[in-house]
């Protein structure tokens, strides 16, 4: 579980995060949604420690990030997996080397053990015949799978995904969403996904945090989002005619 208390972050004179508090639950896919510029990426990167928050607290498990020394922070980072928007695969390494990289860096496991573990996660994310290919030689969907495999090879407690299905076709996007949800449940990971893909919200949003202008405007589940009368949420989520119809059908059926 990750608990965020009153997180504030500014860049120069602009306050981007204005005191956000929420909880991300273990074994669930927690989604952060909001318009572009609402502070989603800054929020995610602040939790990860890529940006130092001005004030507030980030608690991983039972330990506050503030109270951790550098060594403890380094150990925590080894419990974190991250899937970046553009996959962030290392260009100079092939698929297999990319996936094995965290284990080679942080464990004393033999090459044979590392390869065995890599093959397990490669099979888990359904990557076929790609081990020796370079990132430039594989498709966007495969890159995401490699990024997920690299993120879970160390058995992380926390998985962060920044727009994991951006740039993917709808079918691949759903496959990636489902893969993340399955992995989250299977390994009991606390997964935090930053997205503005409404399909993801409907499909895998077990907990949704909606940000607007640096504030937490709303939070709930993908069932509750159908019923909410929060104006900002409905404007954002049901901006397309299709989702308006889906919502209407859902409400009619509920009645």
């Amino acid at each position: 579980m990750i608990e965020i208390k009153n997180l504030v972050k500014s860049f120069d004179e602009t306050q981007v995060l204005k005191g956000i508090s929420t909880t991300f639950e273990k074994g669930k896919t927690n989604l952060i949604i909001g318009q572009s510029g609402s502070g989603k990426t800054v929020f995610l990167k602040s939790i990860l420690g890529l940006f130092e928050a001005d004030s507030g607290e980030i608690i991983f498990g039972n330990t506050s990030l503030k109270s951790m020394d550098l060594k403890e922070r380094a150990l925590l980072r080894q419990e974190i997996g991250m899937v970046f928007q553009g996959s962030a695969l290392f260009d100079s390494m092939n698929v297999e080397e990319n996936i094995m990289f965290p284990m080679r860096m942080f464990t004393t496991a033999s090459e044979e053990e590392i390869r065995e573990r890599a093959n397990t996660v490669i099979n888990r994310v359904n990557l076929v015949n790609a081990n020796l290919k370079l990132p430039s030689e594989i498709s966007g969907g495969m890159k995401k799978r490699v990024a997920i495999a690299r993120a879970i090879i160390m058995n992380p407690k926390y998985l962060f995904c920044d727009e994991p299905n951006s740039g993917l076709d709808p079918r691949t996007a759903i496959l990636i969403d489902n893969l993340i949800q399955e992995i989250t449940r299977e390994y009991e990971i606390t997964t935090v996904i930053n997205t503005h893909d409404m399909n993801s919200v409907m499909e895998i949003g077990e907990k949704i945090v909606f940000l607007e202008n640096g504030f937490k405007e709303w939070e709930g589940t993908n069932q509750e989002i159908f019923k909410t009368d929060n104006e900002s949420v409905t404007k954002f989520v049901y901006s397309s005619e299709m989702f308006k119809k889906i919502r209407k059908i859902y409400i009619d059926e509920s009645i």
Binding site: L50, Q78, G86
Partner: peptide, 17 residues
């Protein structure tokens, strides 16, 4: 620069490198 733009440096930092 390309590593920075494509978030490869961020990926290394998240790993604690």
């Amino acid at each position: 620069g390309t590593m920075r733009v494509t978030e490869q440096i961020d990926a290394l930092e998240v790993m604690g490198i």
